[in-house]
């Protein structure tokens, strides 16, 4: 009985406390840099697409909302022919970002993507691709990868030794 009265009094005192509500459209809530929101495809420092169309993101996606088709350019560099994310299915779990070997697919702190038509929530590659490098700066997959696709010659990469001449007898 007394504890109930005490409860009522304590709740009454809340009248004089600061309100915790953030009035959203006027004031925005703080979103941490690693907040998982809208998915983007990023470019490397040379302004080429980072995506190598390895399908890992599509394979790991729990809701199967990512769809892509790989193709190659004239240098043999892999890239997606189309890259489609259905955001009405996406649950923003971030598994695609974890799976991506090239830091291409990234989740950015933005959630304001309401649409009147459901079809408008299916984002194509040109909607997803941004001009910058996203959260990971200076990383270029083909600079460290062994293959030569016109970015660098064989053996010229960072921490990469020169190619072995396998026709010689001595190593």
């Amino acid at each position: 009985m007394l504890s109930s009265i005490r409860t009522v009094w304590l709740v009454f005192l809340h009248m004089f406390k600061k309100r915790v509500t953030i009035e959203y459209p006027e004031k925005k809530a703080f979103l941490a840099p690693r907040w998982r929101g809208r998915i983007v495809l990023t470019r490397d420092p040379d302004h080429n697409e980072r995506c190598v169309a390895c399908y890992l993101c599509a394979a790991v996606c729990p809701t199967d909302c990512i769809s892509l088709q790989a193709t190659e350019d004239e240098n043999g560099r892999r890239k997606p022919e189309y890259f489609r994310i259905n955001f009405s299915r996406c649950i923003f779990c971030g598994l695609c970002e974890d799976a991506c070997p090239t830091y291409s697919i990234q989740l950015v702190p933005d959630f304001e993507m309401g649409e009147y038509k459901r079809q408008d929530l299916v984002y194509e590659k040109e909607d997803l691709l941004i001009d910058g490098q996203g959260k990971y700066h200076g990383y270029n997959f083909y600079r460290v990868a062994g293959v030569a696709v016109g970015v660098k010659g064989k053996g010229e990469g960072e921490n990469e030794s020169a190619p072995v001449d396998r026709k010689k007898l001595v190593p």
Partner: peptide, 16 residues
Amino acid sequence: LIYVERRMLAVWQERY
């Protein structure tokens, strides 16, 4: 009272 109650409940729950 519908309005008053919602406002006052909000005041006591630190909302608007």
